[in-house]
């Protein structure tokens, strides 16, 4: 039995400690916004936040997340209006959309760590997230836009 706090809600899950957090989130908690792409931390589609830091859920044993605050894409904002989500909508970023939960969670982590990221910062922080539709140029633009929106929001 593992007790997890996902998006502010604490719940017990009858799963082994070494089950990847991803599959507890997806197949047991049934929060499917966090995606499975590779199972090896190669693609970043499974990115969630653990106590505010980005984490690839597919290679994290659920036991390592017990007692910590897990945030998934569903918990990022109640209504899809986080500055990063707004920037994504403004720039019409998504295509197939499968990688975008992970892209957004990574972008949120970047802007949190570096409120005014440069292109080099974006390369360094987001090259762990693969997009086969090639939305990279728009993601780049949207991260810059999100940084501006985030500043306006906190002002």
């Amino acid at each position: 039995m593992v007790s997890l706090t996902i998006n502010g809600k604490t719940q017990d899950f009858d799963v082994p400690d070494d089950m990847p957090l991803l599959w507890v989130i997806r197949d047991v908690a049934h929060l499917t916004g966090t995606k499975f792409g590779c199972g090896l931390a190669q693609c970043g589609a499974c990115t969630v936040h653990l106590d505010g830091a980005p984490l690839r859920a597919c290679v994290t044993p659920v036991g390592a997340a017990a007692g910590k605050a897990i945030t998934t894409i569903e918990g990022l904002s109640p209504d899809g209006t986080h500055p990063v989500q707004r920037a994504w909508a403004e720039l019409d970023v998504v295509q197939c959309g499968y990688c975008q939960s992970g892209q957004i969670m990574s972008a949120v982590a970047l802007i949190k760590a570096k409120p005014e990221p440069t292109d080099a910062d974006i390369d360094a922080a987001l090259s762990g997230n693969i997009c086969r539709c090639g939305t990279y140029p728009r993601i780049r633009a949207a991260v810059h836009r999100a940084a501006t929106l985030a500043k306006e929001t906190t002002r």
Partner: peptide, 17 residues
């Protein structure tokens, strides 16, 4: 690691199972 992509994003406290 880079701001926004710390090593700990993928590398945990011990080798994975």
């Amino acid at each position: 690691g880079a701001p926004g992509l710390p090593c700990g994003t993928c590398h945990g406290e011990s080798n994975p199972p």
